[in-house]
Design a protein around this nucleic acid. Structure first.
Lengths: 184, 184
DNA sequence: GTCTATACGGTGATAGAC
DNA sequence: GTCTATCACCGTATAGAC
């Protein structure tokens, strides 16, 4: 795949992360990415919707990968602590491109909404697999994975808003208690 | 306070809830609210920022009130179940005006960001008081309240995105298990 | 207090040259 | 594949009449 196309997707994801969907303009994407200006509608003929949808999915793929790569080593609490570090280090600009876009477009843009659904599906599945790996016999791993996803998502919102990683760290600790006390 | 001003604030909140900040235009607010067009900058001389900030705070006040009014009767699980019903009934357009606005403006608009901080503060405090009321001796109610807020916030995002109240209901059940098993 | 008209910049999108 | 020019539209904000 073309490196220009890849570059466009990546900076789109970064901008969506910080500003959401409507605040991110195509001109801004082109400027920031340094990609050739004329190439936008060449690579993404369906326009902004397609671009945003693909960026969201690519971002979620990355998140799911990081979950799969790190959950076994760090455990749930440790992994969420690492997310807290990441959010802090980014100047509270990060998370995934998902949250803001999902809220903005849930009932106003079907194409992007479908991409967000798929994206959350990937993330929840990654958590589920990670949790099953840790506790093979565990019932209700699917429900727990949903719960973890929601708590982390909420924690990112709170930490971003407060410009303070403490909320995410508190949530990591709470999830850790859950982690070590499960037995039904 | 003027009824026109109040009407403007209310429909602004509703639009923010559905679309977020940047997608909501001042013209749209005026049209939707039926308020006199010339009155917008009369009541909100600092423009959109002021309007959005006040709408966010008013919305959060309402949420905090509902928490205080219902947590004692319904319990945590029951209360979150009711939120699920509300999100479902609204066609997955609801929640509070907060989430989307908070994500969009966390690092890009200081005035609105400060309003969002205060708004989340009110909500977390309401949950904390509700939890303390249920279990007077409980240590760590503040941390638990933060956790609950994050989980519910995340649940709203997931349910809105999936157009399905199940995620919120699963989270309600998980919080219920927590609720009945706390003891440190 | 309310309204109209308008300024000015930015938006996504398209067409056609190279 | 890439670029420029251009489109119609919508955004916020302001000025001035009533």
């Amino acid at each position: 795949m073309s490196p220009a196309r890849e570059q466009i997707l990546q900076t789109t994801g970064a901008l969506l992360e910080r500003q959401g969907c409507h605040a991110t303009g195509l001109n801004e994407i082109i400027r920031e990415s340094g990609a050739p200006k004329g190439s936008l509608y060449y690579y993404f003929p369906a326009g902004k919707d397609q671009l945003v949808a693909e960026a969201v999915l690519e971002g979620a793929r990355g998140v799911a990968e990081r979950i799969r790569a790190n959950m076994a080593d760090l455990g749930l609490e440790g992994f969420v602590m690492r997310i807290a570090d990441g959010v802090e280090a980014s100047g509270y600009a990060a998370g995934s491109p998902l949250t803001a876009v999902a809220m903005e477009t849930a009932t106003t843009n079907e194409r992007i909404n479908l991409a967000c659904r798929e994206a959350y599906g990937m993330i929840v599945a990654a958590f589920r697999d990670g949790l099953v790996e840790q506790k093979p016999g565990e019932e209700g791993a699917a429900a727990l994975a949903l719960f973890v996803t929601a708590a982390v998502e909420g924690g990112i919102i709170l930490s971003r808003t407060q410009h303070d990683a403490t909320p995410l760290r508190v949530i990591a600790a709470q999830l850790g208690r859950l982690e070590h006390r499960e037995g039904s």
